[in-house]
């Protein structure tokens, strides 16, 4: 007759309900609270936390300022990270016909203005959140479907050749740092 080892059984939900929390301050001084599992999705933030030696005891007393991300983007990012903090790692795409479908919740979250979406991508890139970057790029990619070149130019805000030339001219005409 085998004896079961006396190992304390801790429900996963219990662990989830007692996370370590961190404080993040956006560029416009909004304060966000994010759990440890969620903040791990951001390589930049997690590296910062580990390098600073923040622990469960002092985490809330040491808010992390993120100068490059405004409150609106940070709110979206925190929501996303909290939503996906327990996700398993997805295998990388190996076939050329990508089967990946954006979940509806995330599609709703990313249904924002183009300009805001590009700003969110920049913030995501800065915070190094791979999954959110994948999702944002998918949304951007989906925008291109069934569009004419002119429509693409407007959607993506790509300047025409004439505008591009004008930009280059103005850049070359403007005095340099020593000029």
């Amino acid at each position: 007759m085998s004896v079961e080892p006396e190992v304390p059984i801790v429900q996963v939900e219990e662990v989830r309900e007692n996370p370590v929390l961190y404080k993040i301050i956006s560029s416009d001084n909004h304060v966000f609270t994010i759990s440890e599992h969620a903040v791990k999705l951001s390589k930049t933030l997690w590296d910062l936390i580990t390098n600073l030696g923040l622990t469960a005891e002092n985490a809330l007393d040491n808010p992390i300022p993120v100068e490059n991300v405004n409150g609106k983007n940070m709110e979206t990012i925190v929501q996303f990270c909290e939503r996906h903090k327990y996700d398993e790692e997805e295998p990388e795409y190996t076939n050329y016909i990508r089967e990946f479908v954006l979940p509806e919740w995330d599609r709703q979250l990313l249904s924002i203005d183009n300009e805001e979406l590009f700003q969110l991508i920049l913030a995501t890139n800065y915070l190094d959140i791979q999954k959110l970057m994948d999702y944002c790029c998918r949304v951007i990619g989906d925008m291109a479907k069934d569009k004419t070149p002119e429509e693409l130019r407007i959607i993506y805000g790509i300047p025409t050749d004439a505008e591009d030339d004008a930009l280059e001219r103005s850049a070359s005409d403007s005095p340099g740092p020593s000029g």
Partner: peptide
């Protein structure tokens, strides 16, 4: 003259975005 948001993207991000766009859209 204001550059569009796409052109503001860092190179690596641009590459990732373009890699996610389907072939016919790329051609366009």
């Amino acid at each position: 003259i204001r550059e569009g948001p796409m052109m503001d993207m860092p190179d690596l991000v641009m590459r990732k975005i373009v890699a996610d766009i389907d072939l016919l859209s790329i051609l366009r």
